[in-house]
Design a protein around this nucleic acid. Sequence first.
RNA 1: GACUCACUAGCUCAGUAGGUAGAGCACAUGACUUUUAAUCAUGGUGUCCGGAGUUCGACCCUCCGGUGAGUCACCA
Length: 491
Amino acid sequence: MSEQQQIRREKLEKLKEMGRNPFEVLKYDVTHHTDDIKDNFDEMDGKDVAIAGRIMSYRDMGKASFCDIQDRNGRLQVYIKMDEIGEEEYEIFKTYDIGDIVGIKGFVFRTRRGEISVHVKELKLLCKALQPLPEKWHGLKDPDLRYRQRYVDLIVNPDVRETFIKRTKIIAGIRRFLDDRGYLEVETPILSTIASGAAARPFQTHSNALDIDLYLRIATELYLKRLIVGGFEKVYDMGKNFRNEGIDIRHNPEFTMIELYEAYTDYHGMMELMENMIATVCKEVNGTTKVMYQGVEIDFAPPWNRITMMDAVKQYAGIDFKEVNTDEEAREIAVRLKLQDELKKKLKDCTKADILNAAFEAYAEKHLIQPTFLMDYPVEISPLTKRKNDDPTMTERFEAFVFGREVGNAYSELNDPIDQRERFDQQAKEKELGDDEAYEMDEDFMNSLEIGMPPTGGLGIGIDRVIMFLTDSYSIRDVILFPTMKPIDNK
RNA sequence: GACUCACUAGCUCAGUAGGUAGAGCACAUGACUUUUAAUCAUGGUGUCCGGAGUUCGACCCUCCGGUGAGUCACCA
């Protein structure tokens, strides 16, 4: 234990001996927060208040001291004078440390230097901090410590607190937007015997009661569609999904996703919904639809750009896939565009769809900086999506891109049970060929489609990524309070 | 998974041809009754991420391991 920790423990012991154990305090009646006082000083001047918060710094002037007290909304200076609280109380106060939590009763005033302050008449220690806080000027910088001890990060780095308050507002804004439009928020299972609805490896667990393996959900899609079958018409589930894959600045194993489904509309309806929703929420939390993200201005005002995947590849890679008729021709183009490293399969196994997708990712994706709906994906990589009536090799699907990153994915939902079964069968073949992320067949979902699902539009949005843009956060870890970390293997 | 970088006091960081370490804040003691990164004086902080090796001697060089960050790969 460090010297500083020992000294704090000794101070606590002395307080206990005096019958002033701060941990016996049950409650404290707070009348004001620091911003109430600072924002309304003219009314508050001279009034009595009771505030509570953490001591963040102090300036000891001998028989008088100044402290900065931090509560949920900010900091306020308090002035403590020996003449006011008495010599004995003042001596006890001098044992208080940065990090301790105190309750203060006093009156509001302005110091000679103009700082709005509280003149303390009564002071009570509500919690003794046994560990010192990081340095007052530089704060806590070490990313490892910041993520592992987010509580310290939140105390000493005000912008972190701002980001997470904004996160809460964004999520509340999304709910309000959808609720106002007649959407029903529902909860679908997190534990399930089949993890389907997306291409990802699941986390596995085990039920002792049922003695079966269960998976944590990778998507909510197949359950929400069952609810459309059940007649709810507009539903959404916003919550955690879990994918057992790589961790980087855009991926955390558990992340927040919203999926929403609306009967009797299609992917065009989903485009309008998404662009209006993000613009509305952005304006609510930032006052404008424009944000600066990592130095680049992004404007979420609708309408967003709309371009098909084929047109994007034509524009940025110079290849018109409408004129590519065979897989063989596509493979020649793959060689010409130097796509071999981008392809997941061996070139000879690649279809036109694989190569179109790879060409998009290699040449076009990085150009989609302003919000853009990339429309119409090959059927092979879209197993839950309706085909386009004028081209059955393509589907009515879009992904939304911002800053070259995917933030949303939407379909005109496939409701033809016969086609859907063929798509799952195709996925099963892919799985046999070694693609362990192929979509799992879900027989009960198939049954629901046979009961009958109306034409439906569906949309999924990576909430954490949206929050990154609206808060100018570089890493997904900066918008997740407790990102997934390896434990420290000490001793 | 591969590569690069980082890890030194509670925090932010210096550091050395290889000779067991420093600063600021914080802490302790004292002075100061309107200061605000308060000031002034004095003082002590330590498994230099862990382990092994090379060496008379390792914070520093080599190897193995840990954790984190970044890039790539993977990934809607």
